[in-house]
Structures are given as C-alpha cells and as structure tokens.
Nucleic acid binder design. Structure first.
Lengths: 200, 200, 200, 200
DNA sequence: AATGAATGAGATTTCATTCAT
DNA sequence: CATGAATGAAATCTCATTCAT
C-alpha cells in the first residue's frame, strides 16, 4: 500500500524539483495556485511529467504535505533538544515560512480529503510528541505555574503563532507587538533564562 | 429589508440568496469550491444571474466578506456590551461557524487581492475597536494583572480561538480541552464572575 | 428529473447540429471516435459549446441514442402499418445506416452505463411493440406455420439483419446472398405476396 | 508450451499473460478500455513491458484477435467432428464468452484498420470452412429441406447466436426463449437426433 | 430584471509512444 | 529481457466572462 503509488523513485531529482516548486507556489500564491500546469511551468518542466511522478493532484499535494511534515518534525526535535525548549518551540511556531505552508494545507484540507486525512494524523502526532517531551521537562527544567498541561500549552503557542503569521501576511499588525511581548514574558516566567546557569 | 421589494439593488432578496449560498459553500467545502456555477446551482439560480448581481467573482467574494464582517461587528458590539465582555469576546472568538468563514477568507486573501485588501482593513479596524473598548473597561470592570495591553489580548484570544476551530474541523482535538480550560481560568482571573454582584 | 439536464432548449438548431455530427461520426468511425473535440470539429463548432449543450459525454451519447430510438420507432410503426408488415420489418432490420448505429450503441453499452440502461429499455420496448402487432396480424394477414411466436420472430429477423450489416461493414459477404434469399423465401411463405389480392 | 522457457518470443509466458489480460478487459469492459496502461495494470506488469512485447496498440489487439480466432477454429473443428455437427455449431454460436469477444472485435474493426483486416479475413475463412464441411454432410448426415445452402446456414446461426448474446449482455431477454426454441426445433428437423442410430 | 448562447482558457487526467539503459 | 523517464496529443470537464435580447 505504502509503495503502490510511488512512481519514479523516491529520490529522483526531478521529483524533488516538482515538490519544491509546488511548495513554493503554495506558500507564495495560495493552494489554489498549485495546478499541474503552473507547477510544471514554475519548475521548468512539462505538465505531463508532473503527472508521471504524481498521477493525481492529491498525490502531489499529499506528498508536499508529508515533506513539510517531515521538516516540521525535524524542527521540533531540534527545538525540544535545545537549552530552552519552550523558547525554541515558540520560535518554531512563529516561523513564518513553515507556518504559512501549514495554514495553506489546513485550508486545503477542507475540500481535499486525502490532505485532510494526512494533516489530521500528523497534527495529532505532533501534539502528542510535544506533550510527551514537555511533560518530561516539567519539574526539571521549568514549571507551569499557571497550571496549563503540556498538550494545552502546545495548543496555545500554535494558535498565537499562527494568528501572527496569518495576519502578518495580510499586512495587519495591530496588537502583534504587544502579544509577542506578552508571550515572551510569559515564557520567561515558565522557563527562566537562568535555567542555564542552574544547569551548569 | 424595509425596501425589500426593490430588486437588483443592494437589498434584493435574490442578491441575499446568492450571498447566503456562497457563504454556505465556502464554509462547507472551502473557498476553492465557490465558483459562479456552483454558487448558482446551490442557490437554485442560473449562473448568469449570479453575474448579473456580481459582475466578477471578486465582487461576489468581497461582498460575502463584507457581509461576514458586518455580522462580526454586530457580534462584537454585543459582546462588549455584555456583563462580562472578556468572556463574551472569547465566546465570539470560539464561535465555530463565524471563525470557519474568517479562516477561509484569510486563505483566499493569499491570491485574491481585492479580498486581501478588505480583510486587512476590517481586521485592523476590529482590533482597534476591541482595544478601545477593552481599554475603557480596564480599572473598572477588570484588570490585566499579567500586563498584556488590550490590543495584545485581542490577538491572543483570536489566535487561540482560531486554532481550536481550525484543528477541530480536521478532527484533531489533542490538548484542546486543556487549552480551553486554561483560557477560561485565566479569563476568570482577569474578569471575576462576582463582578456582576459588584455592579448591582 | 427529465428536464433537469436540459440546457439550451430542446429545439435549438445548434443542439441538432451537434447530435447530427455525433451520429455521423459514430456511424462512420465507431463510437470511440465520438469525443468532444472531434464532434465539435465535425460540426464546425467549438468544443466548449458541445459541453454547453451536453454537460457530460454520457449526456451527449444518450441523447444521440434517444434520437436514434425515436427514428427507429417511427420506422417500425410505418413498417407495421404497411401491406406486408413482415417484409417491411425485415427491410427495417436490414437497413444499413440504422443498424450500423444500433450496433455501435450496443458496443458502447459495455462500458457506458447510461447508454446501456437506455439501450436495454428501448430494445425491450421495441421487441414488445413488435410482438404485439405481429400477434394481431397472425391469423388475419399471415400465419406462422413453423410455429415461431411473434417475439421470437422479431429476435430472428433482428439477428440475421444485424449479422449481414456487421459483416458487410467488414467486407465479408460469404453466404450473405444465400441467407438473404432464404429469409425472403421464408417470409414469402409466412406472408404471401397475394395477400394483397385477398384484401381487395 | 513445449518451448515455454524461451521468453520473449511467440511463446513467452509474459506475452501470454498480456494477451489474457487484454482479452479479459475487452470482454468485461469493452474494447475502449483496453489501453496499454490498463492492460499492464490488469496483468500486474509495467506499461513499458506491454510495449516491449507489442510495439503498437494495433499489434496487441491484432494478436488478441488472432488468439481468439485460433480458439474459434479449434472450437469449430471440434463441433464439426461431433455426432450432431449442426447442433454443435449452434452451441458454438451461442457460446457467450467467445461471442462477446467477437462482437467487441467487430466494433473495434470500425476504427482500427489492422483489426478490420484480420477480422475480415478470418470471418471469410471461417464461413468457407463451415460451408465446406456442412456441404459434405448434406445428404449423409442431414438435409436442408428448406433449401438454405450451407454458407447461408452459417450466416443464419451466427446472426441469431449473436443477437442473443448481444441483448443478453444488455439484460434484454424478450423473445429469446421463443427464438432459441424455434432454432432448436428447426435444427432437430434438419439433423434429427436419431441420426445417431441410423449411423451405428 | 433576467437569461440563453457562446467562448477562450485552463485544470485534470489518460494515452501511445520513444529512448536510453 | 525489462524498466524508468519523458513527452506531445488529446479527452473530459469547469471556469469566468461577454454579449444580445
């Protein structure tokens, strides 16, 4: 099942080129711009070649989604390994380029079932993974005085990060500075910078 | 409504029907499904009639966006007039049907300049309006012990509300309960329930 | 339901032109040649116009099938009203142009469910109608000494007629003359030519 | 089969697999469904392999046609050798699976010249062969009281058999029973069952 | 105020075929 | 013997939009 759909070698350079072009297009012009034709044009390839690698548009989009998911996983693992994991997590959630893409896929999920399925699975997994690690850190590296459990914390940061990116893309900035400062002060409370001293 | 019989103008019943059908379609199937044809079919009208009222697709979408904006304004005014404005604001931001629509328009903004423009303006206005009113309430109805300025508070609630709706639509729920409880406890702190007694 | 699909007025000249072109193409080059593009080209119209009148290819093909069915009905009624109905029926079944088309639709039915459904209904109706009328004629105009009931007779003539057309199209003629003569002699027996005298 | 190990040539097992898959597809879904890709998928092979064995689609289809022709020849020889050759011939013509395929190739012939050519040649040969043998049997095993020459008889049986299969596939059955019974009674007359006794 | 007709563009997909390895 | 890569053509359908009535 997993391999059934795969055509043209998982590692082909052309395949990668198509994925990259698609991702870029979606990020810059919205998911509705990711048509076979436009993707091909943007990648400098013939439309039929896109279909050679990705028989259906769903196949292509899910592949891009998976690629983005892998990148997100990588970023999160890195974040959670850092000295100030909470800070790093916040930076992950406010990363413009990544979040832009996630938001597009969220929108796409509404009318692309294959995409919805993948996004749902991966989101749930990611949340779990974050919760697990944050759980372990509690009591060691930082505490949660406000009493928000780890999974909830992940939701809060995700939401606040996304609204900043979403509105930022629109050119809306009212209250952003204030919100950002508030989150940072809050994170400082939860995970004081001098933790590092304490560690050494 | 008073002048409902005047067909074709701003107040035509047909016009309203088209707007309603479009909004529904977008909410249920995503903005990419809102084509002239499908809107017409969904409203039980001829495609050309849609173009008669809305010469271009942009015209239609901006009109739906404005209609939604008006509804949002109405909801916010109501919220801010309530006994517990902060609570009411949070309920506004976690309103599924309205937020779903807003999210679709946000996504649409990426490749529809007319929509982007309107969304940007209205978002900024809404933020301002909320900030203004919350400002007035500070010190009277509630305080902001954590030190988050009103505009920032609006951003936080908007973001958290949206992530709950966005993920909820996907079927993702991990951490939602926890986040929701946290926000509510937090709002209780900022705006204690016994405020009502104090008022009377 | 009946009217739901109808676009562009049942009587439009353009519609008729498309139907005619499609029928001709199918007859001359086989059903697989009846694509939107080719039909349009053959009718001197733009491909999109074909889709304007017939949203899907099935719609078009079923329409052509129905048109052919109506023509067949007309021909049969005429045949059965003639002085020598059996002879006329045989001429109906050996009519090249009509049978060619029927054969194409029979082949098409294999992978076009909408067509299969219509062909099945119409074939059954036609058989019934023929059986009814032949029944009435038995004992008056002619008898069936060999003891083949009317419905069976319709099957025999249909089959023999079709094989002659089918093979004739291929260029095969072996045994055709003999078969044709045999049928005619047989029909003469069943329905003697001097029946006319008896009538007057 | 004796030389089965020699792959790639006329006797390769893969080649056979492709032919079998194609024949099945045509029978079940109509000739228009027999594309390189679908045949390959249905046979569990790569599309390019199909082209390796059959450079063009015509090559493939003609090969299937020839394969079917060989099978028909085999069946006919067997039939004509039987105790009641006429009966056996009729069974040959009412064999569903074989006739279904023949009908598809007849339809295909309309727009595939290579197929038309082969079908024409083989049909003519088959008719001849049947006529020859029936000729020899006349006066020995059976007579043709109605005066239909052997070649004509072959045409009649072919036509009646085909119409039964053709309509049967559609789900039409009106008059079939009657026609079948008539043919059988007729054949009984031409070739009485007690012929066997007379022979011994 | 509403609608039927028409059209060019483009989206998605399938196809047969070629070529290099 | 077999396959992966690539491609041009075409099939089917959807779209937004224009125009005339």
């Amino acid at each position: 099942m997993a391999t059934a759909r795969r055509i043209g070698g998982e590692n082909s350079a052309t395949r990668e080129r198509i994925l990259e072009a698609t991702e870029q297009l979606i990020r810059e012009q919205g998911y509705a711009s990711a048509s076979t034709r436009r993707v091909a044009a943007h990648a400098g390839l013939k439309p039929s070649l896109v279909h050679y690698y990705f028989p259906t548009t769903d196949d292509l989009l899910v592949a891009v989604s998976k690629r983005g998911a892998k990148e997100s996983d990588r970023m999160i693992e890195e974040a959670l390994k850092s000295d100030r994991p909470l800070r790093a997590l916040w930076e992950f959630f406010s990363d413009t380029s990544r979040t832009r893409l996630v938001l597009e896929f969220m929108a796409m999920a509404n009318h692309r079932d294959a995409v919805r399925k993948h996004m749902a699975e991966h989101s749930e997994e990611m949340r779990q993974r974050q919760a697990e690690i944050l759980e372990k850190l509690i009591g060691t590296k930082f505490s949660l005085p406000d009493g928000c459990p780890p999974a909830g914390l992940s939701v809060l940061l995700a939401g606040i990060g996304r609204v900043l990116i979403m509105e930022g893309g629109l050119g809306v900035t009212g209250g952003h500075e204030e919100a950002r400062e508030f989150v940072e002060r809050w994170l400082d409370m939860l995970e004081p910078a001098d933790v590092e001293k304490a560690e050494s």
